Amino acid sequence: MKNEVTLPHGYKPFGLLKVCSNNHKNGRVPISISGDQPFLVGKGKKPRVWINQLALDEIGKTKPLVRDNLTLHPQINVDELESEVIVKVGNEVLLHVVKISDDEAHIIKLDLRMIGIQIYGDESKLHVVNQTLSNNEFVNVDCMIGVNMG
């Protein structure tokens, strides 16, 4: 597992990021898989989103699909509304985040299964591999959920 986490230039985490009903307060990375981040949601005028496809057979090898709300893949669309960002693959939502305030955002839909990662959820619960999390509080932890696939 990698010890050093490299975060994108300009990424600033929200003070409170609600990830499918689970609160992550004063953290940097919502979910880490063997040291890599499948997604990040950061502060900005609108939420700023990064999504990576992970090469699960090679730790540390990621393929960026969305970088700071800019799609890098022809099948992925990023819709920016006044205080929301919706990332879709075709008509299916990959990530939908709503900015509540300058320091709070809520991920109300997440489905990374389309890019080969068993993480999905809605406003009531979050599924990470074979675990289900609902209405939990993660305070002052760098990473809310860490999964080691190696």
Rank of each mutant, 00 (worst) to 15 (best):
E123C: 08
E84H: 12
G146R: 03
G15D: 11
V89W: 03
E84A: 15
L95C: 13
I51G: 01
V66F: 04
G42D: 01
V97F: 00
K99N: 06
M149I: 10
N148H: 08
P38L: 10
P8L: 05
D142R: 09
I117A: 02
G116H: 06
D57R: 13
N136I: 06
G42E: 05
Q37V: 07
K125M: 11
L81Y: 14
G150A: 06
Q53D: 14
G116L: 05
S124C: 04
G15N: 11
W50F: 11
G27N: 12
H96F: 13
I145P: 00
K125A: 13
L94A: 04
N69C: 13
N136Q: 12
E84I: 14
V147S: 02
V129M: 07
E123N: 09
M149T: 12
G27W: 09
D122S: 07
N130Y: 12
K12Y: 13
M1L: 09
L81W: 09
L56S: 03
R113V: 14
R113E: 15
K43D: 04
H96Y: 14
G60Y: 09
L7F: 02
G10M: 03
H73F: 12
L16F: 10
K45V: 11
W50S: 04
V66M: 04
K109D: 15
I59M: 11
P30M: 11
E58N: 14
V141P: 00
Q118N: 14
I115N: 02
K61Q: 13
L40H: 00
L70H: 07
I115D: 03
T6Y: 15
G42H: 04
V141R: 08
E80C: 07
A55Q: 13
L17T: 03
I86K: 15
H24A: 07
V89F: 08
T62C: 12
K46H: 12
V49S: 02
Q131D: 10
D102K: 07
K18E: 08
L133N: 09
G35E: 08
H127G: 00
T71D: 02
Q118H: 10
S124F: 02
I31N: 00
Q37P: 03
N135V: 02
H106S: 08
V93C: 11
I100Y: 07
S34C: 07
G121R: 01
P13I: 01
L40G: 01
V128Y: 01
E123A: 09
G90C: 13
H127L: 06
G35A: 12
N91A: 13
I51K: 00
D111W: 06
T6Q: 13
P47V: 01
H127S: 10
L7S: 00
P30F: 10
Q118F: 08
I117P: 03
L54K: 09
K45Q: 14
E92Q: 11
I108M: 09
Q131W: 08
V93F: 09
T62V: 15
I115Y: 02
L95Q: 06
I115C: 05
L95Y: 06
V98S: 08
N135T: 07
K2T: 13
S21K: 03
P38H: 13
S124H: 01
